[in-house]
């Protein structure tokens, strides 16, 4: 049987009248890469903070490595590597000093940390920057350093809150590659993201969250299979005509979604559907056939886009 590192039942967090996390249940297995997918304000970061023992749940139960964060906050934090959404590196220190002092916060010995620093700098591809003040680093470097820093305590679970938000495409890919390596080493990853490609790339299993609730839970492939068709045909008629075309197109597709700038037609075979449409004398300004993604799953589940 797989060992469950995290178990949440009826996990709830309210701020006054506002319900940030609304009675969610989930399990995370050892070595798993587990994602929280949802738009901003879905309750992902709040859930992460509760797991990170820096926020107290309102109700429900939560066990992390057999411990309750309400009772064993510091002990749970000792198990975790935390990469927050906003970098909180120590700008007044150098790259290696950042790793060093972070290890000291955990009480680790200087000799232990000093042995780890070269290894972590290599992982973060920051060897040449080791004596540079953090302020001078690029966004991607800062994020990699934040990850390297969180690994100094050899955490059982690495928590990444929106790890690539604000990074350029190249920096994102470097970061994904680094996270893959950790996954291969058997580190349990918890990732929140509102990027579907990130969730597809990194997560073995994920929960789709919206307004504090879990809308679905499965592997990315299975979620797409369950909640969407194999392919999607995207057509544009110009913003004026999109609406009037909807009724004409509706009977042709398995399902139809109307976005402000385009219409999404769900079908097993997108090309075939496009042929059908053109055979009827309908000619969209542009058309595109693509595979279904988690974006489509989210749209189906909530009626809204992930990134708005």
């Amino acid at each position: 049987m797989t060992e469950m590192l995290i178990q949440a039942r009826g996990l709830t967090k309210t701020y006054g009248d506002f319900v940030a996390v609304d009675g969610i249940d989930f399990d995370v297995a050892k070595g798993e890469s587990f994602g929280f997918l949802g738009p901003n304000g879905a309750g992902k970061s709040t859930t992460m903070r509760i797991i990170g023992a820096t926020s107290v749940r309102t109700s429900g139960t939560l066990t992390i490595l057999g411990k309750d964060p309400e009772v064993n906050g510091p002990q749970i934090r000792a198990h975790l590597g935390v990469v927050p959404q906003q970098d909180n590196l120590d700008n007044e220190l150098t790259v290696s000093e950042n790793i060093f002092i972070y290890g000291r916060y955990f009480g680790l010995s200087s000799s232990f940390i000093n042995k780890k620093i070269p290894e972590l700098l290599e992982f973060a591809q920051l060897e040449e920057k080791k004596d540079t003040k953090v302020e001078a680093l690029s966004g991607g470097m800062k994020r990699r350093l934040t990850i390297a820093r969180s690994l100094v305590s050899e955490p059982d679970i690495l928590m990444l809150d929106e790890p690539t938000t604000g990074l350029d495409p190249q920096a994102r890919h470097i970061l994904w590659d680094r996270l893959f390596r950790l996954k291969e080493q058997g580190v349990t990853l918890l990732i929140t993201t509102h990027y579907m490609d990130e969730a597809e790339q990194l997560c073995d299993r994920l929960i789709v969250m919206d307004r504090g609730k879990i809308m679905a839970e499965d592997s990315p492939a299975q979620l797409i299979k369950t909640y969407s068709t194999k392919e999607v045909l995207e057509v544009r008629f110009g913003s004026d005509r999109n609406q009037e075309m909807v009724e004409v197109l509706r009977p042709l597709a398995d399902r139809i979604e109307v976005l402000p700038d385009r219409i999404l037609l769900y079908a097993t075979d997108g090309e075939q559907l496009l042929e059908q449409i053109t055979a009827k004398g309908i000619h969209p300004n542009t058309s595109l056939v693509r595979r279904s993604s988690l974006e489509d799953v989210f749209l189906r589940l909530t009626g809204r886009s992930l990134v708005e």
């Binding site: 002990q75 000792a78 000291r104 009480g107 680790l108 955490p155 059982d156």
Partner: peptide, 28 residues
């Protein structure tokens, strides 16, 4: 991990949720 064993040292002692016994690291 090492960090966990260290965190368990003050477990059960007074104020264990608020104090890890390492203010000197903040000084450092």
């Amino acid at each position: 991990s090492n960090a966990v064993a260290l965190s368990e040292r003050r477990l059960g002692k007074f104020g264990d949720k608020y104090f890890a016994g390492r203010p000197q690291q903040v000084l450092l």
